[in-house]
C-alpha cells in the first residue's frame, strides 16, 4: 500500500540525513572559519601570533557567552531582545557597588544578580503575563537601559576594586585569556546540557511543539522561565567581563548587542521558530564572527561596515538552504 512507498522514500532520506541536517551545517561553518583564517593570515603577518589570536577571543567571548544561553531560549521557541539593556543595567549596578567601596566578590555578584533578576522579570512577563517574548523584551529592553540612564545620566563610573580588571583583561596562562577559558568551560557545559540531558531534550521538544510538550508532561512555563533567567544571568556575566575590560561603566554600553548575539545564534544553525539547533554550531558561529570582525579590523574596515557583513552572512546563510529547498531538487 501507500505505506510501502513512503517508507522507501523515508529510508533514502534517513541515510542522507546526517549529511543534510547536522554535519553539513557545522562543516560549512568550519570551512568558512578556515577560509577566513587563511584570508586573515594572508592579510596580516601578525595574525598568526598567539597574542593576536588571543585578542580575537576577547572581542567575541562576551557576546558568545550570552549566545550560548540565548541558543537554548531560541531553541525553546522564545527570544530575548533585552540582553543589551541587561548588560548596561548590570554594569551600572556593579559601578555603584564598587563606588560604595565594597569588595570585588560583591561587585561581581551584584552584576550577575542584576542579570538574574532582569531575567526573572522577562520570564514572568512571558510565562505569567502571557506576553509574546519579542514584545515583552522590547519593552524591558527600554526599561532596563532606561533605568541605567536614570541612575547614571551622562555620567561615568570608573572606580573599581583592584583585581577587577583581570576578569576582562587578564590571562590564565600566556596568551590564554580568562575570558577564553570561561567561554570554553561554559560551552562544554552547554554542549552536555543540550545533547546529553533530559533538559536539552525538553528544550527542543518545547520549541518544536509547545502544546504537545505541555500535553506530554513537560512543565513548559517553568522551563521557559528558567531559560529567561539563564539568559539574564549570562548577560550579567557578560557585563562583568565587558565592564572589566573597558574599566568603566556608561549607560550606553553594549548598544545593539542583542542583534549581534541573535545573529550568532541563527548563524549557528538554530531555527528561529524553535525546535532545531546544536551548541557546537553556535560555538562555531561565534568563532567565525569573531574572526571576521577581527579580520576586518586588521584591514582597517570600520565597525559599522562589519554590520553589513554580519547581516549579509545571516541572510545568505538562511536564504541559500531555503532557496535550494524551494527551487532545487524535489518539490514537497
Amino acid at each position: 500500500m501507500s505505506d510501502v512507498s513512503l517508507s522507501a522514500r523515508s529510508k533514502a532520506r534517513v541515510t542522507r540525513r546526517p549529511w543534510h541536517a547536522l554535519v553539513r551545517w557545522e562543516t560549512l561553518l568550519v570551512l568558512a572559519i578556515l577560509v577566513d583564517f587563511a584570508i586573515n593570515a594572508h592579510a596580516s603577518p601578525y595574525f598568526l601570533d598567539p597574542w593576536t589570536l588571543s585578542d580575537v577571543t576577547v572581542s567575541v567571548a562576551e557576546k558568545a557567552v550570552v549566545a550560548l544561553a540565548m541558543a537554548f531560549l531560541v531553541m525553546a521557541g522564545e527570544i530575548d531582545i533585552s540582553v543589551g539593556g541587561i548588560i548596561a543595567l548590570a554594569s551600572v549596578s556593579m559601578g555603584l557597588v564598587a563606588r560604595a567601596g565594597l569588595p570585588l566578590p560583591l561587585v561581581v555578584a551584584s552584576g550577575i544578580a542584576t542579570g538574574l533578576l532582569a531575567g526573572c522579570v522577562n520570564g514572568a512577563l512571558v510565562t505569567i503575563g502571557r506576553v509574546p517574548s519579542i514584545v515583552a523584551t522590547i519593552g524591558t529592553m527600554t526599561l532596563f537601559r532606561g533605568i541605567a540612564y536614570a541612575v547614571l545620566g551622562d555620567g561615568v563610573l570608573k572606580t573599581y576594586p583592584p583585581g577587577f580588571a583581570w576578569l576582562g583583561q587578564g590571562s590564565v596562562a600566556g596568551p590564554v585569556s580568562f575570558e577564553l577559558v570561561l567561554f570554553v568551560a561554559l560551552a562544554a557545559v552547554a554542549i552536555v546540557l543540550r545533547h546529553a540531558t533530559a533538559f536539552g531534550r525538553r528544550v527542543v521538544a518545547t520549541g518544536s511543539n509547545p502544546e504537545a510538550s505541555r500535553m506530554s508532561g513537560i512543565a513548559t512555563d517553568r522551563l521557559r522561565f528558567a531559560l529567561f533567567v539563564a539568559v539574564g544571568t549570562a548577560a550579567g556575566l557578560a557585563s562583568v567581563l565587558l565592564t572589566s575590560r573597558l574599566g568603566s561603566t556608561r549607560p550606553s554600553i553594549a548598544q545593539g548587542w542583542e542583534l549581534e548575539i541573535i545573529t550568532m545564534v541563527i548563524l549557528g544553525g538554530v531555527a528561529i521558530e524553535g525546535g532545531i539547533g546544536t551548541i557546537p554550531g553556535v560555538v562555531l558561529a561565534a568563532i567565525l564572527m569573531g574572526l571576521v570582525t577581527f579580520g576586518l579590523g586588521l584591514l582597517n574596515v570600520p565597525g559599522i561596515v562589519m554590520s553589513v557583513v554580519t547581516g549579509t552572512m545571516l541572510i545568505v546563510v538562511v536564504a541559500v538552504p531555503a532557496a535550494l529547498r524551494r527551487y532545487g531538487g524535489g518539490r514537497q
Partner: peptide
Amino acid sequence: HLRLAIGDNITLPSLGRTTRGGFL
C-alpha cells in the same frame, strides 16, 4: 512532535524512566 524522531517522541512523557540523574 512532528519534527522530532520517532524514538524521541515515544520516550518524551516517560523521560524520567530512561534517564539517570538527568542524563540521556
